[in-house]
Design a protein around this nucleic acid. Structure first.
Lengths: 175, 175
DNA sequence: GAATTAAGGTTCCATAATGGAACTCAAAAA
DNA sequence: TTTTTGAGTTCCATTATGGAACCTTAATTC
């Protein structure tokens, strides 16, 4: 079976992966959840080639996971924003984060941590807040810089880390 | 940036995807959680070519997500079993299922449903049981056949559906 | 007001990943 | 003795990807 036939399987996982199971697509979505909206910002953050990014964004728009909005008529420039369908992919991303934090993190710890707004505590597990058991969604969580970034910044590493600007803007939002 | 450099990103999602972000790997893991252990069963269920399956299983073993056990010394035949590290990928799979059930299911509904053993109810959301709010893990859930399979079977479709045997064995386990 | 820059792409080509089919190998069954 | 089965490998044609260069429109800079 070729991969482009995989969505014919009677399986929600196969059908989901036929849409977002591409190598780059999940990282594009990660950036979306962190507030990235413009073509050039995705490209800087990911280091993906332009034609590949163009193709992937187009497919996400086709799948109605992202929507293209024009934000400057004279420039004809747009931003890509998550739809409701896209926002609901949040638990997928969060569960990847949880697993990655536990099993792939370097000695510095998690690069980002996630705060559950209703209760103010860090989220540890897949899609439930350890502290209050409340439901977790993209709207109730704020990302903050975690030790995995902070320690490296303090040590002067990450100087030409392309995503640093992004993380700085996150930090400001969370202050 | 090439994909094989992606694990250098300071991001748990990127590092996780560098291990399991491959097109087929998640589907192999899906089968693992459904109880598939043998090379030929993976191949039948997935329709993946043998050399690709061989490569992917090898990488999962290298990543310590699967462990190879010999189950028949004279035949030199083995089975692939999830390690603790692998079992903890369960929330990732469950969140893909939830999203897929909601956004990609056909009119028949979800192909499989998941029962939370402690309370006996279906799981709806990412990683929490709707009914009792208890924690969800691979050990406390039993898959049963959902309407998306059952209705097709009743209509006589799926006759040469390769995975049918697998689903039948699931059904028996859950009876 | 000519040249440069920026956003958001597209085109071209060489390299890498993948699918399909055929082949291997060892042991058991017919 | 031949065939079958599990678990792979090898070979080759097709497809996907990365890198670099190019394009277009509008704005800025010299």
């Amino acid at each position: 079976m070729r991969w482009d036939e995989i969505d014919s399987q009677v399986c929600s996982i196969a059908r989901t992966l036929s849409i977002i199971g591409d190598k780059w697509t999940m990282l594009i979505l990660r950036d979306c959840f962190l507030g990235v909206t413009r073509f050039s910002d995705f490209q800087k953050s990911l280091g993906i080639t332009k034609h590949r990014l163009s193709d992937r964004l187009g497919k996400l728009v086709d799948a109605e996971i992202l929507k293209k909005h024009i934000y400057d008529e004279s420039y004809r420039r747009h931003e890509y924003k998550l739809t409701k369908k896209g926002i609901e992919l949040y638990p997928v991303l969060m569960s990847l984060v949880s697993w990655g934090d536990k099993w792939t993190a370097d000695k510095d710890g998690a690069p980002l941590e996630y705060i559950h707004q209703p209760c103010g505590h860090k989220i540890n597990a897949g899609a439930a807040c350890e502290h209050c058991d409340g439901a977790v969604s993209a709207f109730t969580v704020t990302p903050i810089l975690g030790p995995g970034i902070m320690k490296k910044v303090k040590r002067g590493e990450l100087v030409d880390f392309d995503s640093q600007e992004m993380y700085t803007s996150i930090k400001q939002k969370s202050n």
